[in-house]
């Protein structure tokens, strides 16, 4: 189980973006997550690693209440974003998701033009007052997702016509355009080839300047490359959480060590 000391040392209270305490998730009768407590820092990349079915994606989806769209899912415990309980009855999950953006495992651009894909979030949230302002957001988001130079001449073409790596960067641009504070990424590179993966990883590192990024990954190399903090999940438990360097070089828990050395998984 996660214990406090690893965390207390360097992190001051104001730097914590999301605090989760004793989170339990049930799918019907099955408990998918047990007593997970984590503090996620601002302007940091936090990686969730662990074998398949360990609950890391489930936990990620708790952070923007995407589990609400699954009828049989039930979440208990306390998750706070900037100190506010996101499961409070007064919180509108729709507004929460505008603040906590999400990028999915498989690139899922809408069957619309590249421009409309990026403009989707700003339009539904009424973030712009004029067409030129919207054009500005679209351009800035595509630049931030390192896609602008590849698509600037064909913004009106369908987003589904891009390559897999471009599609995933389009999805990141789409998430960035809404102006989120936290970006959740659920195995964003698992459907991409190594070159596209490298581009997305570089992008994640850039995004750290402005956002808190949480990334779920199966690749420990990826976690080591892009993250500053790593959490290891196993069988629905958070086993260990700490600095990425520490987790990979000096794990405290024997399960973590077995996993990163490839003995379980």
């Amino acid at each position: 189980m996660y214990d406090a000391p690893a965390n207390k040392q360097s992190v001051d209270q104001s730097n914590q973006k999301i605090t989760a305490r004793n989170v339990q998730v049930f799918y019907g009768d099955k408990q998918a997550l047990r007593d997970v407590s984590v503090d996620i820092e601002d302007r940091t990349v936090t990686a969730f690693i662990g074998p398949s079915g360990c609950g890391k994606s489930t936990f990620l989806r708790c952070l923007n209440r995407m589990n609400d769209t699954v009828a049989i899912a039930r979440v208990e415990g306390d998750i706070r974003l900037d100190g506010e309980d996101i499961y409070h009855p007064m919180v509108d999950p729709v507004q929460l998701r505008a603040k906590v953006g999400m990028v999915f495992q498989k690139p899922n651009p809408f069957p619309k033009s590249i421009y409309d894909n990026v403009a989707y979030g700003p339009k539904i949230h009424g973030l712009t007052r004029s067409k030129s302002e919207l054009d500005g957001i679209v351009e800035e988001s595509l630049k931030r997702a390192a896609l602008w130079n590849e698509v600037k001449d064909r913004l009106q073409e369908s987003g589904t016509g891009l390559s897999g790596g471009q599609q995933q960067r389009l999805c990141i641009a789409r998430a960035v355009a809404t102006g989120p504070e936290v970006l959740l990424m659920d195995e964003p590179c698992s459907a991409l080839d190594p070159i596209a993966t490298a581009q997305v990883e570089e992008l994640i590192d850039d995004l750290r300047q402005n956002y808190s990024v949480v990334i779920v990954t199966h690749s420990m190399q990826q976690a080591a490359r892009v993250s500053q903090k790593t959490a290891f999940f196993h069988l629905g438990n958070l086993v260990e959480y700490g600095e990425t360097g520490t987790i990979f070089t000096n794990p405290q828990d024997p399960r973590t060590e077995s996993y990163i050395t490839g003995r379980i998984g």
């Binding site: 923007n64 995407m66 769209t69 729709v94 507004q95 929460l96 998701r97 505008a98 603040k99 953006g101 999400m102 990028v103 999915f104 498989k106 899922n108 651009p109 809408f110 069957p111 989707y120 979030g121 539904i124 949230h125 999805c171 789409r174 998430a175 809404t178």
Partner: peptide, 12 residues
């Protein structure tokens, strides 16, 4: 995945 993408952006 299209629904998820849209909900994930805060669409109702």
């Amino acid at each position: 995945s299209l629904r998820d993408g849209s909900y994930g952006l805060g669409a109702t």
